[in-house]
């Protein structure tokens, strides 16, 4: 076999194991600690959508969201009682929690994590 053909085969093998480039938007978050186990799609939380409307401090100071994906163990009961997402998603500031599919819109099987790493892989502990 010519060396260049071996090189091309090696390149193809390398391309085959490369993960697909992340098409998700920078700082998108998949939340699937409980969702799929309870029969609904994972939640896709989009930072870009929220930061157009709210400053970081609203969720990360007033509402108590910790800045680590997976560090916030939130149930639908919390949300319906007005805590965390439920502080806005109450039909007043934003859509109410009965619009399940707006938030539970993710692909099944995705693990909890931050995605859409545009230039860096993101913090190692995330």
């Amino acid at each position: 076999m010519m060396p260049w053909r071996a090189g091309i085969l090696l390149l193809l093998a390398w391309l085959a194991v490369l993960p697909l480039p992340a098409a998700a938007e920078y700082a998108d978050v998949v939340l699937n600690r409980r969702a799929e186990a309870q029969g609904v799609r994972p939640v896709v939380f989009q930072h870009w959508f929220h930061r157009i409307r709210f400053r970081c401090k609203v969720c990360h100071a007033e509402l108590g969201f910790k800045m680590r994906v997976g560090a916030n163990d939130i149930t639908m009961a919390d949300i319906i009682d007005g805590r965390f997402c439920g502080a806005c998603h109450n039909g007043d500031i934003a859509w109410a929690p009965d619009k399940c599919d707006m938030c539970h819109s993710g692909k099944r099987g995705l693990p909890t994590g931050i995605v859409g790493g545009h230039e860096t892989g993101g913090p190692g502990r995330w």
Binding site: A23, M102, S105, K107
Partner: peptide, 28 residues
């Protein structure tokens, strides 16, 4: 640089509300 939600790899394109969500390109 802004992929549509249906093709972004994390949304389920068959999700009934994906069409109702704001597209990143539209806002950004």
């Amino acid at each position: 640089g802004w992929e549509s939600l249906r093709k972004d790899g994390i949304h389920d394109p068959r999700g009934p509300a994906v069409k109702d969500k704001q597209e990143p390109a539209e806002a950004l």
